[in-house]
Computed example of a mutant assay.
Amino acid sequence: MEKSLWTSCLVVLLLSPTCLSITADYLITGPRDDKCAALGGICQNDNQYCTGSYFSNKCAGPVTTRCCTKNITIRDTKECKNVMIISRDSWGARRPVKVLPLKTPVGDFFLHHTDTKNCTTAKNCISIVKSIQQYHMNDKNWWDIAYSFLVGEDGHVYEGRGWKTVGSHTRGCNDKSLAASMIGNFNDVLPNAAALSSVKRLISCGVEIGRLSPNYSLFGHRDVRDTDCPGNALYKNMSSWTHFHIHGPGCP
């Protein structure tokens, strides 16, 4: 419903049965917008999950009312030349409760694993990413999914909090670092070649676009916390990567 019609109905609500029915329909179904309907979507508050993908500027009302489609539409953030980062809108992420800007370039990059099932298709990876965001926000009471990025064995990177936002991935280091979490458990096996290639290209991109210092240090989560993360097999492998450091990072 257009804003002017909504305002008019508020004024004459008690006098117009027509407005009464329109108002009730608006409250029940949300603003109807042809642009969203053309995509086969519905307009909803983006503090909810979207079953498919979110699209902005397709719905009337506040900017937090966005078009949620039934099907997933993969879209690249286009921040990196050599690796696809699937946007938050693509995987239907909820709006974060709060955002703190990250001062970049940062000097440290942390690698994690999600300790979940592995995924080799975008559909399965997105399902896992959504479940992680739900766990972090609903159970942990964090503002958003913890990681800057997540990497699947489908070869795609999934945008978490991204390059510009403080994460909740490595306690004591969040305001001084970025982090990627490999989707799966990598205690006994390595991520496949596609995932390893993607995370390395993601890190290189961070340097290229000025979000990660050229002389950055690479760490595993276990380097600062009592955890087996990012998994024994992955940690052993990453110890041979450029910029890996066995000394402590520049945070507690």
Score class of each variant (00 low, 15 high):
229 C>H: 06
205 C>W: 08
244 F>L: 07
247 H>V: 09
218 L>V: 13
211 R>S: 12
179 A>H: 06
204 S>D: 15
221 H>Y: 14
222 R>V: 00
175 D>F: 15
235 Y>G: 11
184 G>I: 12
168 S>C: 12
219 F>Q: 11
222 R>K: 13
209 I>V: 15
226 D>F: 14
199 V>F: 04
238 M>P: 02
173 C>L: 04
183 I>G: 03
217 S>W: 06
182 M>E: 00
167 G>H: 05
230 P>N: 07
232 N>A: 13
164 K>T: 10
176 K>W: 00
248 G>Q: 13
231 G>N: 08
239 S>W: 08
248 G>N: 13
190 L>G: 07
209 I>K: 05
204 S>W: 04
243 H>R: 15
224 V>A: 13
198 S>Q: 03
209 I>Q: 05
191 P>H: 03
163 W>E: 03
222 R>I: 01
229 C>N: 14
202 L>F: 01
179 A>P: 00
205 C>I: 10
230 P>S: 02
195 A>K: 12
209 I>M: 05
201 R>D: 05
228 D>I: 12
183 I>W: 09
202 L>K: 02
237 N>A: 15
237 N>F: 15
190 L>Q: 09
212 L>G: 00
233 A>T: 01
208 E>W: 06
170 T>G: 01
209 I>D: 02
228 D>E: 08
189 V>D: 04
232 N>M: 12
171 R>I: 04
219 F>M: 13
217 S>Y: 03
188 D>N: 14
216 Y>W: 02
238 M>T: 10
246 I>T: 14
166 V>F: 03
231 G>D: 00
195 A>V: 08
177 S>P: 04
181 S>D: 02
193 A>F: 06
222 R>W: 00
193 A>L: 05
243 H>I: 11
213 S>H: 04
210 G>H: 12
210 G>Y: 13
166 V>R: 00
172 G>F: 05
225 R>V: 12
171 R>H: 03
201 R>H: 04
172 G>E: 02
171 R>D: 05
163 W>V: 04
224 V>E: 09
235 Y>W: 14
186 F>M: 14
173 C>G: 01
228 D>S: 13
210 G>E: 11
243 H>S: 10
177 S>L: 01
193 A>W: 09
214 P>Y: 02
218 L>H: 03
176 K>H: 08
232 N>R: 14
185 N>S: 14
173 C>N: 03
169 H>T: 09
195 A>M: 13
203 I>T: 01
184 G>Y: 11
190 L>P: 04
214 P>H: 10
190 L>V: 08
231 G>F: 10
226 D>Y: 15
181 S>I: 15
231 G>I: 07
172 G>R: 11
169 H>D: 13
179 A>I: 05
212 L>A: 05
168 S>F: 12
165 T>E: 11
190 L>F: 12
177 S>T: 10
178 L>N: 00
192 N>M: 08
199 V>W: 03
184 G>H: 10
235 Y>N: 10
229 C>R: 06
211 R>T: 15
212 L>V: 03
191 P>K: 11
167 G>E: 00
192 N>R: 04
163 W>G: 05
242 T>Y: 10
211 R>A: 14
227 T>G: 11
219 F>E: 00
199 V>P: 01
197 S>D: 05
190 L>D: 01
239 S>N: 09
208 E>F: 13
243 H>L: 05
187 N>C: 09
191 P>T: 03
171 R>N: 08
217 S>T: 14
220 G>T: 04
